[in-house]
Amino acid sequence: MQASEFRRAVAAATSIAASVGLVVRVTVVLQDSNKLTLRLLPCDVLARVAPEADQVAGAEIALARRLAESGGPVAAPAPGVEPRAHERDGFVVTLWTYYESVTPEVPPADYADALVRLHAGLRRVDVPAPHFTDRVEQARRVVASRELSPDLADADRDLLGGALRDLRRAVVRRAGTEQLLHGEPHPGNLLGTAGGPLFVDWETHCRGPVEFDLAHAPEDVADHYPGVDRALVDDCRVLVPAMVTAWRWDRDDRFPDGRRLGVEGLGRLREALRSRATP
């Protein structure tokens, strides 16, 4: 967030925490990009702060609550606080349990087991969610619009737009059973806690094949996930970084060092497409 937004976002989080009876004397910034993640002390609660236009926060914390109550491997809303989205001064704030990460990397077998249990829990939840292809189309709109992605060169625009179109078709054509997914269960959204792996960040939950989720995990995780379509995983492993690359070229993107990542993503996409074309 920009400096002026940052100060207001922190103030909104601490004010809301105080209004629900939490004691906050110190705020520790855990992540600052399109959204702000804070650790509030001494109540030791995690606050996620998003612009008010983000209306996913309420659905996100409601879904996490249902999964946590059923024993799913997810970070739970803050104890003793109503699990809902709070609005203040142009921001939406949700309050979560803070978990200490005790291991920097979750072993592939444990990662896969957590995903299997997560997907089983998600199959028991009936909530409205976009299809994964809606997210692909969001990325394509960024690429298609020179207004939204003014710094993207024409040749790169054609490459990225064509890849998103073709890969979306390939995944839809191969996909079998679909269900509710996390949407982005990459290592940054998996905490290795003392109680086991826990997934966080539900803003991108969607519907689609489990292979779409697996494409966000390290490659060897799929080796431990039963019954997956490996060719579909391979298609998703090119589609997902293509989507991420598109978002890095969005003029409003606030991801740290995003432009460098966008350039690197284009290079990796070219390499992946050449590999797919090689017999």
Rank of each mutant, 00 (worst) to 15 (best):
M1F: 11
M1D: 12
S4D: 15
R8L: 15
A9D: 11
A11D: 15
A11L: 14
G21E: 05
R25W: 10
V26G: 00
T27K: 02
T27Y: 12
V28A: 11
R39N: 08
L41N: 11
P42M: 07
D54K: 07
A57K: 11
G58L: 06
A59M: 00
E60A: 14
A64R: 00
A76K: 04
G80T: 01
V81Y: 00
R84M: 13
V102H: 04
P108G: 11
A109F: 09
H119V: 11
A120M: 06
G121R: 06
L122G: 08
V127F: 06
H131W: 09
H131A: 13
F132L: 10
F132Y: 13
V136Y: 01
V136P: 09
A139L: 08
S149R: 08
P150S: 08
P150T: 10
D151L: 12
D151A: 12
L152T: 08
D158I: 13
R168V: 00
V172T: 09
E178I: 04
L180A: 08
L181K: 00
P185G: 06
N189V: 03
P197L: 04
P209K: 02
A217Q: 07
A217V: 10
D220Y: 04
Y225I: 12
A231P: 01
L232G: 12
L239H: 04
V240T: 10
M243D: 00
M243S: 09
A246E: 07
W249A: 05
R251N: 10
D252M: 08
D253Q: 04
D257R: 15
V263M: 08
E264K: 13
R270A: 09
R270W: 12
E271H: 14
S275Q: 15
